[in-house]
Amino acid sequence: MPIPMEWYLGLGGVIFAVGMFGFLVRRNMFVMLLSIELMLNAVNITMVTFSHYLNDLRGQIFTIFIMTVAAAEAAIGLAIIVTLFRNKATIQADEIKEMNG
């Protein structure tokens, strides 16, 4: 008995929600970045699932692009954190609030 597609999709959704939750509540910017990686991974799982169940490779192609962007985003994000830490001496997201009204 094959596994229904919906199960995989549900798994992706749960992981996405966990990543989102992490992004929204954590103060540490490293963990926020990791949360983004989690969310992207959840999307990757969904894409590959579609690819498998619809017999179409385009889902996997998308996944490759998402991974590319994720790598670029991680590099830039870490560079920003480094710069931020150098200037503000903190990586806690809620201690940087120059934009408050």
Partner: peptide, 11 residues
């Protein structure tokens, strides 16, 4: 008053 909405907190 509306300005207070802009907390500056990323989250």
């Amino acid at each position: 008053k509306l300005r207070k909405l802009q907390t500056g907190y990323l989250q």
